[in-house]
Structure formats: C-alpha cells, structure tokens
C-alpha cells in the first residue's frame, strides 16, 4: 500500500492535458490542475482518462444542488405543501440540516389535482426525494417516495 499523497489548497498537482482531467476537489487554471482541499490525492481511471481527485479526510462540504437524491424528515404540513428538513444527501449524513419544501403538485407524477397531502405524509415521516430547483428561501423536491413512517 503506497503512502497516501497529502495536499493542501492551492498545490499544483499536474498538467492539464488529454489524459489528465480535473475531478472533485480540484480546479483548473492556466493549463494546470490545482487542489482546492486539504486531503488525499486520488487518481481514478475512467475510460482511458485519468481523473485527478482530492478527497478531504473530514466530512465533505456538501450542499444540496439540483438533481441530488436526499433523505428528509417532514416537519410541517399545509394544504399546498409540506416543509421538511434535509438530513442526508446521497449516502452522506449532514452535520447541519437544510430546509426543503415539497409542493402538492410534486407529490405524485400522475393525477396531480386530486392529491391530498395529509393522506400521503405525516409530520415525522422520513422520505427520499430529488431536488428539483431553488426558489425563494428553500427549494422544491419532486417524485418523492415514502420509504418509512416512524414515530
């Protein structure tokens, strides 16, 4: 097992060319790939291209972005939407929770007019959802699947 390669932010990792690509935790500038985190360098082979990534040792700084699958817990219900608290993004548990909102129209793909939020969710339910967009102070989710109801 080779000794892990540790890097600091701003450290030049390698040249940016056809075989080397910048992955997560890195950025490109003036033809070189630089690290943007303090952590371990990993070179992943993907379809003949070497993707240079940097993984931090602590928790990754993750914010919910469009398209992410998140795990959330329902807190408040009204006629038109339900507010929830996002606890996990993908497989990573968040140390700080974020707020999300699920609109009535987004609960079910079909039969949008006759959906009753109170019949689908209760406060305390844990749901799996996908982030659709950003709006005023929170962001909507769509196509939620209830995986577990737990008191």
């Amino acid at each position: 097992m080779t000794k892990p390669l540790i890097c600091v932010p701003g450290q030049r990792l390698c040249i940016l060319d056809k075989i080397h690509e910048s992955g997560q935790g890195t950025y490109e500038r003036q033809g070189y790939i630089y690290s943007s985190l303090a952590g371990i360098v990993d070179v992943v082979d993907k379809e003949g291209v070497k993707v240079v990534e940097v993984r931090s040792t602590g928790e990754q700084t993750l914010v919910p972005t469009q398209g992410d699958i998140v795990t959330a817990q329902v807190t408040i219900l009204t006629q038109d939407f339900c507010k929830c608290v996002i606890k996990c993004i993908g497989n990573t548990v968040l140390s700080r929770t974020y707020r999300g909102m699920l609109r009535r129209e987004d609960v079910c793909a079909t039969d949008k007019d006759h959906v009753q939020i109170y019949k689908s969710y209760r406060p305390g339910d844990v749901i799996l959802a996908r982030v659709v967009s950003f709006s005023e102070f929170s962001f909507s989710k769509g196509n939620a699947l209830t995986i577990n109801s737990y008191q």
């Binding site: 996990c88 548990v93 737990y150």
Partner: peptide, 9 residues
C-alpha cells in the same frame, strides 16, 4: 449507524 443516529436520535 450515522444515518440512524441522525434520523431517530
């Protein structure tokens, strides 16, 4: 365990 701790403390 981490997910369990976060969802049902």
């Amino acid at each position: 365990a981490k997910q369990f701790k976060s969802l049902h403390p």
